[in-house]
């Protein structure tokens, strides 16, 4: 029980930090990897909440395929989000 709690808290901290990084980061590559970290934490959550089927799906689709599709998009468009402090576009 106590180990479950520790693992759950660790994953919750990782997911919250990764969400903040994914939203605030100007470099979209880092934001996409933060999204992958959210999926990884979510997979552990599903496993601890007794849903192994969903954990397997999340690990296969959320961590691998979604990240790759985002990376292909970034390769074909732009890598840096060019906005100023107020949120206005600079290009």
């Amino acid at each position: 029980m106590i180990w479950t709690l520790i693992l759950l808290s660790l994953m919750a901290v990782i997911m919250i930090v990764a969400t903040i990084v994914a939203i605030r980061q100007k470099d979209l590559l880092i934001a996409v990897f933060a999204t992958a970290a959210i999926s990884l934490g979510l997979s552990v959550f599903y496993f601890l909440l007794q849903a192994p089927d969903v954990a397997l799906t999340e690990a296969a689709i959320g961590v691998a395929l979604t990240t790759v599709i985002f990376l292909i998009t970034i390769r074909n468009t732009k890598r840096y989000e060019k906005v100023n402090k107020a949120g206005q576009c600079k290009e």
């Binding site: 192994p52 089927d53 397997l56 799906t57 296969a60 691998a64």
Partner: peptide, 9 residues
């Protein structure tokens, strides 16, 4: 655990 969707992925 697992099935068609996971295996296909």
């Amino acid at each position: 655990p697992g099935g068609g969707f996971q295996g296909g992925a």
